[in-house]
Amino acid sequence: MEWLELFELALPVMLKGALYTLMFALVSMVLGLMLGFSVALVRVARLPVLSQIAAVYVSAMRGTPLLVQIFVIYYGLPGIGIEFDPVSAGILALTLNVSAYLSESMRGAIVGVSQGQWQAAQSLGFGWWQSMRYIIAPQALRLAVPSLSNSLISLIKDTSLVSVITVTELMLATKEVIAQTFQPLPLYLAAAGIYWILSASFERVQKRVEARLEASYRR
């Protein structure tokens, strides 16, 4: 098969798959950040019962393979009458998984802001939530960005795992083209290249965010 022909055949399918991959990554990222922040808050505030539940959740999500989590949600839960379509199941699994990692990064960063900053905020009349929102969280964000980015880059790559539940994202799309063309090496390399481009673009976003947060300290 000619290169050009292969390219023409593979490109539209793989680009469509890449769009799915991007969608999975972005949606899980946003939901994961929200859930992760809530989990971090519950644990930092040491809310009784809730914070224990949160700790177990984080430990379970970090201590079991994402692949197993996807299987439990998509193939397991229907056994007790909870059914998801593949896209929802994929987003749910990725969100639950990444938010556990994100919550730990945020919790570490929040705890890393000195006790003196809490005291200063409280001495001015800020309550717990106001101290968190206006004083602690903005500083924690700056501390957390590098490790949050790590988890988010992993997330982009982890989306390939939802191919196992019949979602035609980049990985499964690639496999389908290979089934027609029997050209695994160039096509898998192309898929790897696309993942790399996605991750590298995200790294650039991260650099920009970091530079902006840093600038507000020095200006």
Partner: peptide, 22 residues
């Protein structure tokens, strides 16, 4: 307590200005 603290000024050994704000 927040209301009471808002009426009592406090100055700390290590200043504790908020570094992310001007």
């Amino acid at each position: 307590l927040p209301k009471l603290r808002s009426r009592v000024g406090m100055v700390f050994q290590h200043f504790e200005l908020f570094p992310h704000l001007t």
